[in-house]
Amino acid sequence: MSKLLSVGYWVFFSFILLFIALPMVVVLAASVSPTSHVTFEFWTWTLEWFGKLWTSKWLDPFILSAKIAAIVAVISGVLATLGAYAVAYEKCPGHDAIMSFLLSPLAVPQIVKGVAIVLFLSSAGLFRYLGTPGLIAGHIILTVPFAVRMIATSMYNFDKNLDRAARILGASWWQRIRYVLLPLIKPGIFSGMTFAFIISFNNVPLSLFLVRPGQSTLPITVINYFEYSLDPILAAVNVASLLFILAVIFLFERIGGFTVQIHGGSK
């Protein structure tokens, strides 16, 4: 009985791991299969679909997405550091309530935030800000709470005695920020920014409302193309953008020095 249970557990366990890996493996195989028929006969595999990505049809949305994600990562990094500084480091009066406000966008579904922002821009006569500026504003709302949470955690862990020591040794306020606090919370800031970059780059529910013709992000372009066919070029686009994300994480990790343990958090 016990043995049966144990076998059952491992079978179920392997099934789940297979379930998790399967779609990724299939997309990888699809991106190198010669036809739209996915094949695992690796001797027929080809990179021709990746070659076809070098057209403005795919490059333009990719560049726009990367640009928006970079801007969003930097702005939300700055905003979140400021917010976390006041709330988690200085612990200004009412910091709990302010923290809840900074995290409040997390409680609202993305699609609801998207509707709210598009209605706001439209009815305030700011229609022309749909597209890139709207996308940046929307994504910032989405990413700031995550970044605040990550940076605040590293501020909570900061040993205040270091600050005291620097003060006794005569460091000014700015010197203490610049040479004591910032270097120590740098990993937190960079993991917050990396997270912001990934969320923005992959985002669908908000971007859906904010893109406009000629200014469409990569995931939205891919989704719109879905409706026509399951062209293997889509698999190539997806694999390429995953590789890009991995490269960005690697780069940020190099600069920021956070040891990656990307946690999910809620969307």
Binding site: L22, P23, M24, V26, V27, I198, F201, N202, V204, P219, V222, I223, F226, L230, L234, A235, N238, V239, S241, L242, I245, L246, I249, I262
Partner: peptide, 10 residues
């Protein structure tokens, strides 16, 4: 990390 589009496509 892969995003919802890649997985849905898969």
């Amino acid at each position: 990390l892969a995003g919802v589009v890649l997985r849905t496509y898969g």
